[in-house]
């Protein structure tokens, strides 16, 4: 019996010491390291923010997105996705006050379902995340900085014009080198709108007059875009795209912009992107 107890004590001490030493204590003056933005090589970062007017932590996520916009300027495109699904219910994304505009969008719901969004806020950076692996807001910045420094595999530029009530979007680009894609190459065109003043839940409190920008209002063609090139484009492959949509009655033409995303349709990854204000 004594032998058993001594052996057990040694076992306890040994294993306990191992477990206890597996603990990294960071000194108080070493918790932060200075970090600089890498050099931009031409790849536009796209942050898609799954958000909702009934989501109490979403304004904090919006601040993070805004901070990134300040840091990266026009090299970052932010898109707000208000998508209602079976998991993200109307209480999170539906209007919080009578008379508020409804920011929900069917394409946003498609993306939310595909990426298995279980709660808000969360996001995607260039859609490099697999379904079920959406990013918490704490990971947006570092992930966006990582993509910012990546070399692009393709170029894209776009123009958008309004004639009467018809928006025409034209985009073109190329793959300078051969690219091994998983799927065909598609262009996905989003109509975004700024300047929605709504009641937003902020830290548990209904706050009127909160402004939402870059809200996805419409996707031209279909939710996953249209094909512009076959898979595995050869070096110097070029593409052109033209899409049109009629302005809807509940859109404010003065606040519209267009984001054109070049995507691998298998992985859904955004290879590059361009954003243009309507009629600029």
């Amino acid at each position: 019996m004594k032998t058993k107890i001594i052996a057990s004590a040694l076992l306890l001490f040994g294993f306990g010491a191992w477990v206890w030493t597996a603990c990294d204590k960071i000194p108080e003056d070493e918790t932060r390291i200075s970090s600089d933005l890498p050099e931009w090589q031409g790849k536009t970062v796209v942050l898609e923010d799954f958000t909702g007017v009934g989501c109490t932590n979403c304004p904090n996520a919006a601040e993070i997105a805004h901070g990134l916009q300040t840091l990266m300027g026009d090299k970052l495109i932010v898109v707000e996705l208000h998508g209602q699904t079976e998991t993200v219910t109307a209480s999170l994304v539906g209007p919080q006050a009578d008379g508020d505009p409804d920011l929900r969008n069917a394409a946003a719901a498609v993306y939310s379902t595909y990426w298995k969004v279980a709660g808000l806020p969360c996001g995607l950076i260039n859609r490099q995340q697999a379904p079920g692996e959406v990013l918490s807001r704490a990971r947006w910045r570092s992930t966006a900085i990582g993509v910012y420094g990546e070399a692009p595999v393709a170029t894209i530029e776009a123009t958008a014009s309004l004639s009467g009530s018809t928006i025409t979007v034209e985009a073109k680009g190329s793959f300078p080198q051969a690219y091994q894609s998983k799927g065909e190459i598609r262009v996905l065109t989003m109509i975004l709108e700024d300047g929605f003043s709504v009641t937003q839940i902020v830290s548990g409190t209904a706050t009127p007059g909160y402004i939402h920008n870059h809200v996805l209002r419409h996707v031209i063609d279909e939710a996953w875009g249209v094909k512009v090139l076959d898979a595995n484009p050869a070096a110097n492959s070029m593409f052109n795209y033209t899409g049109t949509v009629n302005v809807q009655s509940n859109w404010n033409k003065d606040n519209l912009s267009v984001a054109v995303l070049l995507c691998d349709n298998d992985t859904k990854e955004i290879l590059n992107a361009a954003k243009v204000k309507l009629n600029q």
């Binding site: 597996a22 200075s34 900085i145």
Partner: peptide
């Protein structure tokens, strides 16, 4: 990499792995 900004300064957290 968890990056953030405080004022004008950009930081990265020194994260404990254990």
């Amino acid at each position: 990499n968890i990056d953030f900004t405080v004022g004008e300064n950009n930081y990265r957290l020194n994260l404990p792995q254990n």
